[in-house]
Design a protein around this nucleic acid. Structure first.
Length: 396
DNA sequence: TGTCCACCGGAACCAAAGGGGT
DNA sequence: ACCCCTTTGGTTCCGGTGGACA
């Protein structure tokens, strides 16, 4: 047994490819953030109010994914905290922590109190949060990342409450840093929330290809052994990510996975084909993961779409729903209403698995036209492997 | 020039699961 | 013991709609 472990262990230790793979992982925050100097400066100059123990303005940060919003924010806050040491901050990702209850629970927990993870009302949690805040007697910065996801699901109520905490708390003060990659998001907000959350605004522009290249180069030196990754490979990864709205995280993922593939193939240099394979593999993993964790009826709807698309090139909501009902019935399962199915189709669209666009066909009504946005093989594989009921159905 | 299709999508509400406080 | 909470994945009801066709 331990031989196997040893073997695996030594293969990591003696990797011909990686010196230290960690530098390419998405949660690694580097010592310096190239090409984000302006943003760091701006953010720091707002937060520096902390020096006098004052509450900095609430800040709203926009920028597309992978433009360094999260990294810059964490970087500035942790550095400031090291130097000032008179405030605290919580970082909450509102896509993972996606209910008002859990946001409050997280804040309370980071402040050092325990709360039950269900059972209480949000009003009660709010009360408790105020209590712990009152006790801490400091300035508190609350970072809400991907705040748009939360508001889409639960409205801006909690934001309103959070922006008003300062009226309820006297010995401490809080500021909110909201981060979003949806630029239009702020328009839909309650005006009161908008004005108080947007006391200061910061926009992160996407990286261009050269900047991405520079970033990749710096990380590659740390992560890879010498000679494993050539300049042209880095250029390639940067170019691919730049096409994809300058997403640095994608660029780094690409480079890392390309390295992993190279290692698996027991080669000692990353080549263009490994980068291409990485691109495909990343997309495939993402799609697989998303599909495998879908609720049952969403999977069924997806299966219906796959089935329908073997006969037609595009499907309407009605056609999908008929198929779905047939499949569900033949499997002896209940089926959801068309209203719900329509929502499921929208959800699949937003996840990028299908592409659904609303069309008006005059006399023939208004509907949605659906086509698959990813390879059907991987969709089917994910469906069949994640639920044995489908396997029975598909083969039988 | 109006009709009318085949849905869209907002709103309110529901029930079971997983839990509280007092 | 009793009545309370949120979340998830729904349901019911319904007004709205762009443009092909008579």
């Amino acid at each position: 047994m331990s031989d196997i472990i040893d073997e695996v262990l030594s293969s990591v230790k003696n990797s011909a490819i990686f010196k230290n793979r960690e530098y390419l992982l998405p949660d690694y925050i580097p010592e310096e953030l190239p090409h984000r100097e302006n943003e760091i400066k701006k953010l720091a100059s707002i937060l520096v109010q902390l020096y006098r123990g004052e509450r900095p303005s609430n800040i709203f940060i926009y920028g597309l994914t992978g433009t360094g919003k999260t990294a810059v924010t964490k970087y500035v806050l942790s550095n400031l905290q090291r130097k000032l040491n008179n405030f605290e901050y919580v970082y909450i990702n509102a896509r993972q922590t996606d209910t008002p209850y859990r946001i409050l629970a997280d804040i309370i927990e980071i402040l050092g109190d325990k709360v039950p993870f269900t059972g209480l009302s949000t009003a009660e949690l709010y009360r408790r949060m105020v209590k712990v805040l009152e006790r801490s007697e400091r300035v508190m910065i609350i970072v809400l990342d991907e705040i748009d996801a939360l508001v889409k699901k639960h409205g801006d109520d909690i934001l309103y409450k959070l922006t008003r905490v300062n009226y309820d708390v006297h010995k401490s003060k809080i500021s909110i840093v909201g981060i979003t990659n949806d630029v239009k998001f702020i328009d839909g907000l309650d005006p009161r929330v908008r004005s108080s959350l947007g006391e200061e605004e910061l926009v992160f522009p996407p990286y261009n290809a050269e900047q991405l290249e520079d970033i990749l180069k710096k990380r590659a030196v740390l992560a890879f052994r010498e000679g494993v990754v050539s300049e042209s490979i880095i250029k390639l990864c940067a170019a691919i990510a730049a096409r994809d709205h300058g997403d640095a995280r994608r660029a780094l993922d690409l480079l890392r996975v390309a390295g992993e593939i190279t290692e698996r193939e027991r080669k000692n240099q990353v080549g263009e084909e490994e980068v291409e394979k990485a691109r495909v593999e990343i997309e495939r993993d993402r799609v697989y993961e998303v599909i495998a964790t879908l609720p049952f009826h969403s999977k069924l709807v997806l299966l219906s779409i796959i089935k329908g698309l073997t006969k037609n090139t595009r499907l309407t909501t009605g056609e999908i729903y008929d198929l779905y009902r047939n499949i569900a019935t033949s499997m002896g399962s209940e089926f959801v209403t068309q209203r719900r199915a329509s929502d499921i189709i929208n959800e699949l669209d937003m996840m990028g698995i299908i592409s659904a666009r609303v069309v008006n066909r005059g006399r023939y009504g208004k509907t949605k036209e659906v086509v698959l946005a990813v390879d059907s093989g991987i969709v089917l594989k994910a469906l069949l492997e994640s639920d044995e009921r489908f396997a029975d159905f598909w083969s039988g």
